[in-house]
Design a protein around this nucleic acid. Structure first.
Lengths: 161, 161
DNA sequence: TTCCGACCTCAAGCACACTTGAGAGCAAGG
DNA sequence: CCTTGCTCTCAAGTGTGCTTGAGGTCGGAA
């Protein structure tokens, strides 16, 4: 987490600076700028061209972080965020509505992982490893198997050859 | 799935060709070559320098596919595979031993996803989105949230702007 | 006024897991 | 033998989600 050390804290009115947003969300400044370039957020600019954020943007960024943790791509998240009301600050209910899809997805994923776990012992050492219709390779949709993203979670520490 | 259409099928003795391995595993030929370059598999070569595989390599590749589906990186899988016996073809018991780590990991991930699901409604629309110590952002280790890999699983079809 | 830290843009780079392309060499059915 | 399709190597490209660097501006405390 670079760019996040001393922080003098000025200008609370007229919006938050990108550094303040970074500090509050834990995101890197560069990541926030990237999200803007991807049209996930739309801060306004002050006279000098510096970004200024609303408090609501923190929530928006938080949603982005959660959605990413759940496996969503930037494009998907953009689509999701488009469903928020345009003219006004989203309410708790708006966010909750958005989250419902994720909840259903979580349910599906949990079910699939449970199946995967139950299949693992009976499958991994057996003849079905010679393939054909083993549930371990084609767990419904491949997505349900929970992705190629997370690193260093399988018990081995990173950096081993 | 390119490179997987007509298939004449010769030379069963003296090992399987890369095309045959590809057909049986569903992997692309290029992916198999890549795995060799990453030292996950080690086919021998015939006189002309073409790769020849053992049947046991199918199982090995299958393990790779499963492990990837569970979020393991190439490096991690390489480490895992190093634990297999060197001199002989791995037995079902060998594979089962390897899979135990994954089973434990699956248990952890299922638990975390359940927690995530339970937290989702109570968290996503509420004040904790303004951050600090919300479980949704820092679900233990970030890996437990199941990764940034899987695409198109959140209910929205791909290709939407 | 000075100065340092925070901010700006734009281009390029990175890591991962492959795929694609060029150019050439085998293998086996007809 | 010929042809077709499978195989080879090596380099470069792809997509995702950022980070890094260069070169420069802004803001506010001293």
């Amino acid at each position: 987490m670079p760019e996040t050390k001393p922080l003098r804290r000025p200008l609370r009115r007229d919006g938050l600076t990108i550094g303040q947003i970074a500090a509050r969300t834990g995101l890197a400044v560069s990541a926030i700028r990237y999200y803007e370039s991807e049209r996930l957020i739309a801060p306004w600019r002050n006279d000098a061209g510096q970004r200024r954020f609303e408090r609501a943007d923190i929530r928006r960024l938080s949603f982005i972080m959660i959605a990413q943790g759940l496996g969503a791509s930037i494009a998907e998240i953009r689509t999701q965020l488009c469903r928020l009301p345009k003219g006004r600050t989203p309410t708790a209910a708006d966010w909750r509505r958005l989250s419902e899809g994720y909840r259903k997805d979580l349910d599906r994923r949990i079910t699939q992982l449970q199946k995967l776990r139950d299949d693992l012992d009976s499958c991994i050492g057996c003849g079905c490893l010679s393939l054909e219709h083993c549930t371990l390779y084609n767990p419904g949709d491949r997505a349900g198997a929970a992705g190629s993203g997370p690193r260093y979670l399988l018990g081995d520490s990173p950096g081993q050859s």
